[in-house]
Amino acid sequence: MPINSSKRRERQILAAEGYLALNMPDHALRELGHIEDVGDERYNVSMLHGEALLMKGEMQPALDDFREAHKEKPTELNALMRMAWCYKRVDQLPKAIDAMKLAYQFHKDVPVVLYNLACYYSLAGEKFEALSWLGRAFRMDRELLKLVPRETDFDPLRNDLDFQHLMALTSSQK
């Protein structure tokens, strides 16, 4: 008995997910490339394809896939965050900020959205925006403090007295 196309597609998507979990992006891309009709799985296929390309370091094509996924599900946080991540790495920081601002519109209660906005504003040299978003992120989730020492996005602010004051103030309020 032949497998219907939706079952075959489901198996191919699961196989691609497995290959990605094993850090085998070429195998995942090959599996995704064999899907004849993505049907109602366009978002998932685009996200998986983008993730595979990210593993290969192919930022611009990955960004294209994440934008395609975003078209399918405009409020989906994962697509917006991946778009922003790629925009940053292809030197389109204003678009990374725009993607995170859009994510914030739909996900105001997710601390990492605010944290990422702080990161991107820091890189853009927008100190007061960065500190404002970072302070708000800390108020939502103090665990984010643990990320800051290793976060290179805050390097432009490390020696800034206002940044240091925010870090000291927030650390003392545990």
Rank of each mutant, 00 (worst) to 15 (best):
S5N: 14
K7L: 10
R8Y: 09
E17D: 03
Y19T: 03
A21H: 00
M24W: 01
H34F: 09
G39V: 03
E41T: 04
R42V: 01
R42F: 02
R42A: 01
Y43H: 07
N44E: 06
N44H: 05
V45N: 00
M47P: 00
G50A: 02
G50R: 01
G50C: 04
E51K: 13
L54E: 00
G57Y: 05
E58Q: 07
M59H: 04
Q60H: 08
Q60A: 10
L63F: 05
E68Y: 10
E68T: 12
E72I: 06
K73F: 11
T75I: 08
L80Y: 05
M81D: 02
R82P: 02
A84E: 03
A84N: 02
R89C: 03
P94G: 08
P94K: 10
P94H: 10
A96P: 00
D98T: 13
A99C: 10
A99V: 08
M100P: 09
K101A: 07
Y104L: 14
K108T: 14
K108F: 14
V112N: 09
Y115L: 11
Y115I: 13
C119M: 12
Y120L: 14
S122K: 08
L123F: 12
A124R: 07
A124C: 07
G125S: 12
F128V: 13
E129R: 13
W133K: 11
L134V: 12
G135L: 07
G135D: 15
A137G: 09
F138C: 12
R139N: 14
D141S: 13
R142Q: 12
E143C: 07
L145C: 09
V148C: 10
V148H: 06
R150I: 14
R150F: 13
T152K: 15
T152V: 15
N159V: 08
D160T: 05
Q164T: 00
A168C: 06
A168L: 03
T170Q: 07
